[in-house]
Design a protein around this nucleic acid. Sequence first.
DNA 1: TGGCATAGGATTGCTGACAATCTTGACCGG
DNA 2: CCGGTCAAGATTGTCAGCAATCCTATGCCA
Lengths: 232, 232
Amino acid sequence: MTLQSDLPANSSSEDIAAALRRSILAHRVSPGSRLVEDEVADIFGVGRSIVRMALQSLAHEGLVTMIRNRGALVADPGVREAREVFETRALLEPRTARSAAERATAPAVTRLRHHIEAEHRALQAGDLGQAVYLSGLYHVAIAEMADQTTISAIISTLVSRSSLVVALYWRRPQALCERHAHHALTDAIADGDGTKAEDLMKGHLLDLLANLDLRERQPVGGSLRAVLLRSS
Amino acid sequence: MTLQSDLPANSSSEDIAAALRRSILAHRVSPGSRLVEDEVADIFGVGRSIVRMALQSLAHEGLVTMIRNRGALVADPGVREAREVFETRALLEPRTARSAAERATAPAVTRLRHHIEAEHRALQAGDLGQAVYLSGLYHVAIAEMADQTTISAIISTLVSRSSLVVALYWRRPQALCERHAHHALTDAIADGDGTKAEDLMKGHLLDLLANLDLRERQPVGGSLRAVLLRSS
DNA sequence: TGGCATAGGATTGCTGACAATCTTGACCGG
DNA sequence: CCGGTCAAGATTGTCAGCAATCCTATGCCA
């Protein structure tokens, strides 16, 4: 496991959860990897109880799977969950994009464009994982513009899980569609055109789902033994 | 704090969380009440770590608010959150009801009717809290019929939070509308009429929202001191 | 060789104790 | 009488250690 920790020395469980989350969403640890409590605790320089709390948080978000007496794994969503996550987003995000457009402010739109730029830079630097992570932040930023904390929180976890799904099922290495979709959507929001924003978001999500390769797949990772058994 | 514990002696954190959840949803503990770790631990005969995990679970569900160094309170949603919870349900549940209708099976419909009967009995017994709890289970049962675990889980937490909202903002002591709405909805599902089920669910949720008294309200509960200060 | 039992190591589950923090109530000066 | 300060009690936060559990690998036997 290679987690860059930025050494916050003694940090709270939320700090640890955030650091782990970033690593998972940016695909620096792959789905199915074990997250051993002692190991994580040593990396961040904290006790195991802190790590346990952080892992439980991530488990509630669906980023980590905890199995009793066996520990925590980075979640490894199947095709069914992959589909469900995007279907749920399709129910929530279009309407939310409309609300965001209806109450768009100049600084908020600027923030959206900065998100897109950062994502673009990551792509050009070849860091696909980081780009996916930033792309998720863009969607969360829209949800926050809509000023509905409840929906915003739900979308945030769905976006997180989408990042795992993309790590496992994404078909095309370079997703050029992304950039255009986000640009067009941002323009609609900047114009305050709620209907257009709603439509664009809906199309964008369907597009993402269509670009997944949702064929049944053997669960990846797990123990080394499982990997070797599978390759034989 | 009066929590009936049914004494499962040494139970897991999920058992404790479930017991606490029931007590909260059935309005046996009021929003704003403190949930002291030692106290809960004694009631259920377990250690504090177990209780901590259970409380953290409930916090993630939005039923409990945890404040660092100050402990856990039963959540006390404001009018804004009340509205948002129902708005989110209005986005998710109608479509889910349609799916449920489209794949309805006879035993599942029977289960729905049993839910309604149980709710009815609770109402007649005068246990409004229990009735609200069972009414929530009815909605969750529909979500489960739709066979979408992701949406189902989200709806489940939203329904839980709705129960808190009802405890705080419900306008009319006897909600007769409920029974008719649930009956009609069940009929539509039994007939496999997805469109009708979707419409009925939408109307039902709007109806619920309309029956809330969403005027700004001083936060209830908390410390006794806060209560007394407010009444002066 | 292949299947099965078993010992060893690794990891998690949990408890008790102690430190850190907050609340409460009394005290004191104005 | 009022406001502020401070100590005592209550409660949470964290850690270290031990027990329980599971995985792995070795050895045995057919």
